[in-house]
């Protein structure tokens, strides 16, 4: 589905290498886990794959087509990046969930409460969650909302940049359950790339394993 060839990133100001030429091919049903020390370039890789930062070299293909220029918003809607710290907007949970439908990219879609309620069920949350004020949410609830906001749009690939590293065990379980529901609901037509520091989480959510060190990515033979 997603195919990066010799993707490269350098710091725009100092020219320091942030990501050595990296190739990565993610097929449907694959769930890659990226581990490695802080500052190794894991976020750089994820942001480059999401085209949040423009690569300085290499090629990125999605479903066989090269991506760039004005197709980037459409690509980002299909290959969605989820940051470690969720950014919420003023208003309620529902306001935040409705926000993407105000974008040009999703103008033909409609907010579907029943989809959300089903996903909330997977995360063990009542429907009244929708009426909560975004600023009153706990860290775990905020990340849950962040993920719901992305998952409701049925992306093909999720780039998860340490989505649970700031959460407790319970909230982490909630997030994993929600993501499992999303993957199951799309019958293998999805893939994820998941950055984590937690080896047990890596074993729970991954079926391919990578290690990032010194801005280089290497695939590991088996479970870490």
């Amino acid at each position: 589905m997603l195919s990066a060839t010799n993707l490269e990133r350098r710091d725009a100001q100092s020219g320091t290498v942030l990501l050595h030429p990296t190739s990565l091919h993610l097929r449907a049903g694959e769930h890659g886990v990226v581990m490695g020390p802080s500052g190794a370039g894991k976020s750089v890789l994820m942001r480059s794959l999401a085209l949040l930062d423009a690569p300085d070299g290499g090629e990125l293909r999605f479903l066989g087509e090269p991506v760039g220029g004005h197709e980037v918003p459409a690509y980002r809607a299909r290959v969605a990046y989820v940051a470690q710290r969720p950014a919420l907007f003023a208003g309620t949970v529902e306001d935040n969930l409705r926000l993407p439908y105000t974008l040009l990219q999703h103008r033909r879609r409609r907010f579907a409460p029943d989809v959300i309620v089903a996903l909330l069920e997977a995360a063990d949350r009542p429907a009244s969650f929708l009426g909560k004020a975004a600023r009153d949410l706990s860290g775990g609830e905020a990340q849950l909302l962040n993920l719901l906001r992305v998952v409701q749009l049925a992306p093909a690939i999720l780039l998860l940049d340490e989505p649970t590293s700031a959460l407790d065990a319970l909230a982490t379980a909630m997030v994993e359950a929600l993501l499992r529901r999303w993957a199951d609901g799309n019958a293998g037509e999805t893939a994820t790339l998941w950055v984590t520091h937690d080896p047990s989480q890596a074993r729970r959510v991954g079926n391919r394993f990578f290690r990032m060190q010194g801005a280089r990515l290497e695939e590991l033979g088996g479970v870490p």
Binding site: L52, R76, A87
Partner: peptide
């Protein structure tokens, strides 16, 4: 801003 971009915003 980046969240919006990630959601497919122009």
């Amino acid at each position: 801003v980046e969240t919006l971009l990630s959601l497919g915003a122009t």
